[in-house]
Nucleic acid binder design. Structure first.
Lengths: 200, 200, 200, 200
DNA sequence: GATGAATGAGTGTTCATTCAT
DNA sequence: CATGAATGAACACTCATTCAT
């Protein structure tokens, strides 16, 4: 049943199957045959739409990154006031968005991190992602803190967000978004409190 | 040339080779043949000292965990005074010990985390490790904070430590231990400051 | 953009692409996809004009054979006198024609010979080709030599021509047509000298 | 049933199976699985003794080359007198030795020639082989002919030998060694006759 | 204790072919 | 007439594991 214009449909379908496969059996056992079976297509189709398995994995990682970016920007759009605190909370919330803390997403992110240590193409993507979070945080902190403190605050906040995410992922239980966000908010408030002290 | 008492020597040798192999080519390409070649022994010997490949990986993870534990306790022994702050700094420093932030250690930890999501034996070890850090932190915070705050502080600190470690590992550059520790110290001081406010 | 009378154009186009593909990557890597890409058409069209891949290969071999035949006959037409020597030189020259000693032609001939050992359709073509050369030579030698000697001379000359061609093809350098022809001319003259001796 | 010191045994066994496989189904269908089945061993053993399939093919080509070399030298040893004619006849006979004109050998040589056009490792071997024949011939002709004529005679003789071999291989019938040798002897005598004329 | 020969299942990938559009 | 989506078998190769020596 071949049809034209299937490319975007098949690509989404295969990326979804990849996330599901990694969720079910882990990246090392997520063979092309397994993914294809989940997607309900033949093995060969993956080479047809992605050059090879690595192409599929790269596309999957891009998909997760884009979902993260959109999660943050969706929250930006809902903001009533453009204050650093509001923006920073949006960033925090976006990082704990459902698309990022679901089982498939968490397991796939972890697998990508491990793979990225030896796969240049994934490494590049992962560093872009890391930098983006830091830049976003730094940009907001810079509005109320001198450069050096802003940087330190951004580094700390980025680490805290990633750490909360990581420990949530590894805990085995479902991610307690509210609790994680609260801890991050607290850190945020402590950093912003410094700002006021510094200004006064 | 069979010798007696080779077991501990061979085991250390093979664990070291495993760390080196993961550092060089990643866990998925760290085949038994590759590890054996690095260790300068035959393929078959791994089954002899460890039940199978999984046994070797499990032993390697235990090795890393023990190194972490020892890194913390070594710093405990150097303490002049047993204050929560001193102990907590020791924990922080221990987590950024050379044995934990070296290339082989970082890459192997990452690989283990990813694997642990689908391998019960590794998952058990990893959760023990996570719990240990949280318990240690919580125990110290408890000395100066009420239970709920102590727990929150411990969760935040654990996440911050892991997050700093993670972002250091993923950055690609060599780990800036001093900078990471400073950020953690700052978080520590902010939490301890809360304690004084609460008590006064 | 369907057009009428495309068949001969497409067929030539695809045969040319096949020769080019074999020249570039060898017969075993000259996949339908590769050939189609070189020809600038879709994969499926090959089945449309040739039954299957084998049909395309067979047509390509026929193309080379026809080029050889035409190369000889073109030289026949230029002859001023119809002597055995002149005809035999024309045969020699025709076999070293540009269409036969170009890179694509040489590589494709070699590949066909190897394939012909296990592919009946190609084998048939190849034997027709071999017989044709022998018959042509034998027919000319017969004009000046008794049957047994004519046959031996034709066998020797056919082998020499093919051998010169083969060693030229395998040498890796560009084919030295002049040198090869000279060696064949010499052999020819030696055989014809026998004729004169025999007659006198 | 693993044993030590199997390497030379297994290597010969697999090279023989390769020749048999190429004889039966041609090089393109002589898969590792097919060869292993013929040899009565598992697929994986080929990677164990030869790096990969190409390693096996290369070893097989070396085997054929060595058999040729030995065929010539065996005939050298039987010579009563060291004359150019005797040596050159030994070379001719060696090239039509049973090891070179058997079905498996002929089909494998043809396949190697075709492959050598795009496989550097095979090409190197094939050129060594071509050069060796030419050098041997040239060395003998040089004893009775001036350099330029010796070279031409060697080129012609090499081409004639290869051509006779080639047409014998492609004919489909069993190789008529006697007839081929006779044609080559005749060419040889004609060249040597030139020598006498030149000297007188 | 230690080796390395041997297995065979499993991997990613390629490919000729088919066929709805 | 022509496309390219889709298949599924076949391929070379890798690998953890076993076991006779």
């Amino acid at each position: 049943m071949p049809k034209v214009g299937m490319q975007p449909i098949r690509r989404s379908q295969l990326i979804a199957a990849t996330l599901e496969a990694v969720d079910q059996v882990g990246m090392s056992d997520a063979s092309i045959a397994y993914i294809a079976r989940l997607a309900g297509v033949s093995n060969g189709i993956i080479s047809h739409y992605f050059q090879d398995k690595n192409g599929l994995l790269e596309a999957t990682m891009r998909h997760l990154m884009q979902a993260l970016s959109e999660a943050v920007h969706a929250r930006y759009r809902l903001l009533r006031e453009d204050t650093p605190q509001a923006r920073l909370r949006a960033i925090i919330d976006g990082n704990f968005d459902e698309t990022q803390v679901s089982g498939p997403a968490m397991k796939t992110w972890l697998a990508f991190w491990a793979s990225s240590m030896h796969q240049p193409s994934l490494r590049r993507l992962q560093r872009v992602n890391d930098q983006r979070l830091y830049s976003n945080l730094c940009g907001q902190f810079r509005r109320v803190l001198p450069q050096p403190q802003a940087r330190a605050a951004a580094r700390g906040m980025a680490a805290l967000i990633d750490g909360l995410w990581l420990r949530g992922a590894l805990s085995g239980e479902s991610f307690d978004t509210r609790q994680a966000a609260q801890i991050a908010y607290d850190y945020l408030d402590l950093q912003l409190a410094k700002a006021e002290t510094a200004l006064s």
